[in-house]
């Protein structure tokens, strides 16, 4: 934890050495995310319900998934740059320091500009909160934390895969960036097989969909068992265990580069 903060701060200082580039990256990040927010607004001015969910309810799904992803991406998303570090040989130098290589990877190139994405998601979530009944509000922080853990585990699995397939970081992106796009809308708009897949195989449905059904008091369109609504912590735990094992196996198989 301390090491993470130290490394992240050092990276922020290092990137601040290039003042213009630093300023441009912050401004452009905010601009891109603001445009993104405008796009959502335009969609919702034309559509009042989506997959059986009201505008505010959809914003709730969008916001929870967005906040979880933005946090996971900001704090740990850089682990997916592993293949670049393997090819450049810089991963070797991480392995000779007395700090976990996972922490070093996560903090690597930490950019303060990523706060832009988080800010946008927080605003959408904030606007949706009137749909959340007081008695069920406790689930909101729980689902956000579980979402962060699930997305981080997916990032880690994608990184672990790069130990074997150095040229395939894109595959992992399908599940991370693809995963956030998927979960930002009610899963009821997708096909049944896809929903079963993200429930039982890659448990993205537990990022927000299942706990949100509880929070919003909605019936499951697929009629899946009710206890699944409370299973996010379990799904997060199981997926992180799998990700941790995969990461360790990856390090054992790590082959470095020539000389």
């Amino acid at each position: 934890m301390g090491d993470y903060l130290l490394l992240a701060w050092t990276w922020v200082r290092a990137s601040a050495q290039y003042r213009t580039s630093f300023a441009v990256s912050i401004v452009s990040s905010f601009a891109i995310n603001a445009l993104d927010a405008v796009a959502i607004g335009i969609v919702f001015t034309h559509v009042t319900t989506l997959g059986g969910f009201s505008l505010r309810e959809v914003m709730f799904l969008y916001g929870t998934s967005g906040v979880s992803f933005a946090l996971a991406d900001m704090l740990f998303g850089n682990v997916e740059r592993l293949s670049q570090h393997i090819r450049a040989g810089t991963f070797d130098t991480m392995l000779i320091r007395p700090v976990s290589p996972f922490v070093q990877m996560a903090a690597d190139g930490f950019g303060a500009h990523r706060i832009g994405r988080l800010a946008q998601a927080v605003i959408v979530l904030g606007l949706s909160l009137p749909v959340v009944p007081w008695s069920r509000a406790w689930m909101v922080p729980v689902m956000i934390v579980c979402g962060v853990v699930i997305f981080t585990a997916v990032f880690t699995l994608g990184a672990a895969l790069q130990f074997v397939l150095v040229d395939a970081p894109e595959l992992a992106n399908a599940f991370t960036y693809g995963g956030v796009t998927l979960t930002q809308y009610p899963l009821s708009v997708y096909g049944e097989q896809l929903v079963r897949g993200v429930t039982y195989i890659v448990p993205l449905a537990f990022v927000n969909w299942q706990p949100a059904l509880y929070v919003l008091g909605q019936p499951d369109p697929l009629g899946l068992p009710g206890w699944l609504r409370f299973a996010s912590p379990l799904a997060a735990l199981l997926l992180s265990a799998v990700a941790a094992l995969a990461w360790r196996a990856g390090i054992r198989r790590y082959r470095s580069t020539g000389n």
Binding site: T10, A14, Q17, G89, D92, T93, I96
Partner: peptide, 8 residues
Amino acid sequence: RTTLWWDL
């Protein structure tokens, strides 16, 4: 390869 921080 260096273990030093390039920009600092």
